[in-house]
């Protein structure tokens, strides 16, 4: 007597895909929110021999309206140094990186006091630039 083998159902449960999509969406939305200076409007200056910073402990942006932001929050330049000191704390060298994003047309009257404040707080400055492909 030949016993017929029962056929196994090997289909992927398509209904679960909706749940997976929803969880992935939440994950990416949270990830996007963490980079909370992404809403600021600025265009980087160009440069060559660019490198990625190894660490990133604070982010300072001067947008196209000459407004200074620390980690996405608007701050007056006069208090920037003190706020950076709090963020950087007693971190050792190499873990005090402050990335600086300045709109390419911002003038020295706005960006020099910011650079001075970062230097005063003991931050390790890393300018964010765009690769100059013409050079």
């Amino acid at each position: 007597m030949i016993v017929k083998r029962r056929q196994m159902d090997a289909s992927v449960p398509a209904m679960a895909m909706g749940d997976i999509a929803f969880l992935l969406l939440i994950f990416f939305v949270i990830l996007a929110r963490a980079r909370d200076d992404s809403h600021l409007q600025w265009k980087p200056a160009t440069g060559v021999k660019l490198v990625r910073p190894a660490t990133m402990n604070a982010s300072v942006v001067i947008d196209k309206y000459n407004v200074t932001h620390l980690n996405g929050r608007e701050v007056p330049v006069s208090s920037l140094s003190e706020e950076l000191k709090v963020i950087l704390g007693e971190n050792a060298a190499g873990r005090r990186t402050v990335i600086l994003k300045v709109h390419h047309e911002v003038t020295a009257i706005y960006f020099e006091p910011v650079i001075e404040a970062i230097s005063e707080a003991g931050g390790e400055l890393h300018h964010i630039l765009e690769e100059d492909k013409q050079r």
């Binding site: 980087p44 440069g47 021999k49 660019l50 490198v51 990625r52 910073p53 990335i99 650079i115 970062i118 230097s119 005063e120 003991g122 390790e124 400055l125 890393h126 300018h127 964010i128 630039l129 765009e130 690769e131």
Partner: peptide, 11 residues
């Protein structure tokens, strides 16, 4: 963008 140039400034 996340690339750039490090700059060392004296305090």
């Amino acid at each position: 963008p996340d690339q750039g140039r490090a700059q060392t400034l004296p305090r």
